[in-house]
């Protein structure tokens, strides 16, 4: 047994300094959500709209030069739109930090004002003094979001270094973190968990399924996103969102990082 202690000491710290060290997030190479570049679509071309399995892409006058817009809250980063686009309009990007406080920020809007979102951030900051206890509920996921959530406690991300913890009891949780397509049978346990949490309490939808229904939306047991069931404070789409994106969204909630996407436009 003693050799484990020695081994542990000898290995030292494997933890990243991210987000303080800007590039040390460990997600190099990850393909994120597609970007809409300036350009004009070929006459009558709807290839991307047809290829999208989750109806995340649409056309709206003025949304971009081509009129193409993406609802990132519906995107599962499958890259099919990028592959079928005959013009250089849709492009793969390395953008994955897409946590937002307002669901509409994931969609294109001409003018978007979110004073509530700003105020929410300030309130959380005063209440929680930057520490956070999380209760996770899987409400019908494919296991991908859990795989990446479990990674948060590995030595690299080491969530504890940020004062953020997963907790077993909802009684001691500040944040309800929900993944999955919201199957009918999980709604009861989900609501019971939420009701067992002391106020003030916050809710985060993690993964495209929890944000909008995702790939399973429209199934005979599934829902259309968490905000149909309870008030949601932070939305993080992704399929699955990677651990760094989850950390970004958690820090966004406690007011320790800033939002990267505004009005449906990637940085």
């Amino acid at each position: 047994m003693a050799f484990w202690t020695l081994f542990g000491l000898r290995k030292g710290s494997a933890s990243t300094k991210w987000p303080k060290a800007v590039d040390d997030h460990g997600q190099q190479g990850v393909l994120g959500m597609p970007k809409v570049l300036d350009g004009v679509c070929a006459e009558g071309c709807e290839a991307c709209i047809e290829a999208c399995p989750t109806q995340a892409i649409g056309r709206k006058e003025g949304a971009s030069q081509s009129g193409i817009f993406i609802d990132y809250g519906r995107c599962i980063t499958c890259q099919r739109c990028v592959e079928v686009c005959p013009e250089p309009i849709l492009q793969a990007s390395d953008t994955w930090a897409l946590g937002v406080r307002n669901r509409d920020e994931l969609c294109w809007q001409a003018a978007l004002q979110t004073p509530e979102a700003t105020e929410l951030g300030q309130r959380i900051q005063t209440r929680f003094r930057r520490s956070l206890h999380i209760r996770h509920v899987d409400a019908g996921s494919c296991g991908g979001c859990e795989s990446e959530l479990q990674a948060l406690n590995n030595p690299f991300y080491n969530l504890h270094r940020l004062g953020i913890y997963f907790t077993a009891s909802p009684r001691s949780a500040d944040l309800l973190l929900v993944t999955g397509a919201l199957t009918r049978s999980m709604l009861g346990p989900l609501r019971t968990t939420w009701e067992a949490m002391p106020e003030p309490r916050w809710v985060m939808a993690v993964g495209t399924c929890a944000v909008s229904g995702g790939i399973a939306e429209g199934g005979y047991t599934c829902g259309h996103g968490l905000d149909n069931e309870m008030p949601v404070d932070v939305y993080l789409p992704g399929c699955p969102p990677n651990p760094a994106a989850i950390i970004h969204a958690l820090l966004l909630l406690v007011g320790r990082s800033s939002q990267h996407i505004h009005a449906g436009r990637l940085p």
């Binding site: 899987d138 019908g140 996921s141 494919c142 999955g180 397509a181 199957t183 049978s185 999980m186 346990p189 790939i215 399973a216 429209g218 199934g219 005979y220 047991t221 599934c222």
Partner: peptide, 10 residues
């Protein structure tokens, strides 16, 4: 099967 999403029909 609390998480049954009906993926075969999807």
């Amino acid at each position: 099967f609390l998480k049954h999403r009906g993926m075969e029909r999807r």
